Simulated scan of single mutants.
Amino acid sequence: MLRSKLLITTITFLGLLNLSQSALAQKLDRINPGEVWPDDRGAHIQAHGGGITKVKDTYYWYGEERRQDLDSNRRYVSCYASKDLTNWKFKGDVVAFTDPENLGPRWILERPKVFFSKKTGKYVMYFHLDNSTYKYARVGIAISDKPDGKFSYLKSFRPLGHESRDIGQFIDDDGAPYLIFEDRPLGFHIVKLTADCLDIEKEVSLIREHMEGGAIVHYKGLYYAIGSALTGWRPNPNRYATARSLEGPWSEFQDLAPKETNTYGSQSTLLLKVAGRRDTTILFLGDIWKPKTQWDSRYLWMPVEIGSGKLWLPQPGPFKINVREGTTIKINN
């Protein structure tokens, strides 16, 4: 009798546990900027300082894995996959490196961005590689045969001999890959990658502004470049400039949100173009950093108002996106 009661209790508990996990992982119908963003397991997405790479109809989101139970000697990059930019499936940690170049305690791997080389069929990850004093200032490269496969460390270097800290990525409409990097002595570099994405082909532009968190999008004949001031973890007024070609000349930088909001507490990491059958939406992707509880850092994703040389990030709020149509709908609570 006792055994039967224990069996029933166990079955009931497992049923409630499965129900709870199912509820946590229920399908989302909207993006809620600044809130906890659960993945398919119900866990908060850990893809900080990240980038998005689209492969056919699937988006892959790579970012810094910051959960609490990580091995302190390793640095991790997580990967998530989605077809709707709203519901994300955890594909695992595609990077779990120990110190690759004897950089010492508290070595740094930040802002991973993945390019696909049509020439080689490889997925190439760039990231900021540094020591604890930020004096190494290089980009690291890792490669994989699959977008969600394990990436193998390849090398590090300084692009064209320049210091490189925060990096960003841009894929132009013709598929050409570009790296954006912050160089403390000189400014904001835009460089074109080689066809195999393993090196720099040439410098395209040097914008003499000291900015990090760089991102670029091409929209209706204009290039829009955005970046963040150098204030560490603290948010600041992100700004943008425009040009008719990547080579410039670039306009003066202007605020992309009300200055007093400090970009609504976020820092830029990517401008994502979602081109659909009816329209094209440009999403601002930013990080809301929590330096003391990094695992709880949030994301500010929001459609921008863009066109005719103007770029504006509106007050964040819940919205729905239809990637097939390229449209968004703001939700009024």
Rank of each mutant, 00 (worst) to 15 (best):
E110T: 09
D84V: 07
D130I: 08
A137V: 08
K83A: 02
G121V: 00
F127L: 02
L129Y: 00
A96D: 11
R111N: 09
D99S: 12
E101D: 15
K91R: 15
K118W: 11
N87D: 01
K118E: 15
Y136P: 11
E110V: 10
D93K: 15
N131H: 10
S132H: 05
N102F: 12
W107R: 01
S117Q: 06
E101G: 08
N102Y: 06
T120H: 04
F115N: 12
N87K: 00
R106D: 15
F127D: 08
T120V: 03
K91F: 00
W107A: 10
K113P: 11
K113A: 11
T86N: 10
Y126K: 01
P100A: 05
F115M: 09
M125S: 05
Y126Q: 03
R111L: 02
I108R: 14
G121T: 00
L109G: 08
N131P: 06
K83D: 06
V95E: 10
D84G: 08
L109E: 08
F127P: 06
G92T: 02
G121H: 00
D99F: 13
S117K: 03
D93T: 13
K83T: 15
K119P: 07
L85M: 08
L103Y: 04
G121A: 01
L103S: 04
T133V: 14
K119R: 13
L129D: 02
N102P: 08
Y134C: 09
S117H: 04
F127C: 11
K83V: 15
S132G: 12
L109N: 09
K135W: 05
R111S: 07
T120E: 00
P100F: 07
Y123P: 08
L129F: 03
L129I: 08
W88D: 04
K118S: 14
T133K: 15
E110D: 14
N87V: 01
K119S: 11
V124G: 07
P105M: 04
V114N: 01
D130A: 07
D130K: 07
K122N: 09
F90P: 03
L85N: 00
W88H: 05
M125K: 00
K83G: 10
K118P: 12
K135V: 10
T98N: 10
P105A: 04
F97K: 06
L103G: 03
V124D: 11
K91G: 09
H128P: 11
R106I: 14
T133L: 15
E110G: 14
T98D: 06
W107H: 03
T86A: 13
L109D: 02
L103N: 09
E101T: 12
F90L: 04
L129K: 05
I108E: 10
V114C: 01
A96K: 14
K122S: 10
D99L: 14
T86Y: 12
K118C: 02
S117V: 11
W88Q: 00
L103A: 14
W107N: 00
A137Q: 10
F127N: 07
G104K: 01
A137T: 12
D130R: 09
M125T: 01
K91Y: 03
W88K: 00
D93R: 15
T120G: 04
L85H: 05
M125Q: 07
F127R: 01
K122E: 02
V95F: 01
E110K: 14
V95K: 11
R106N: 15
D93E: 14
K135T: 15
K118D: 13
L85R: 04
D130S: 13
P105R: 10
K83C: 04
K119C: 07
K113C: 13
E110R: 15
V114K: 01
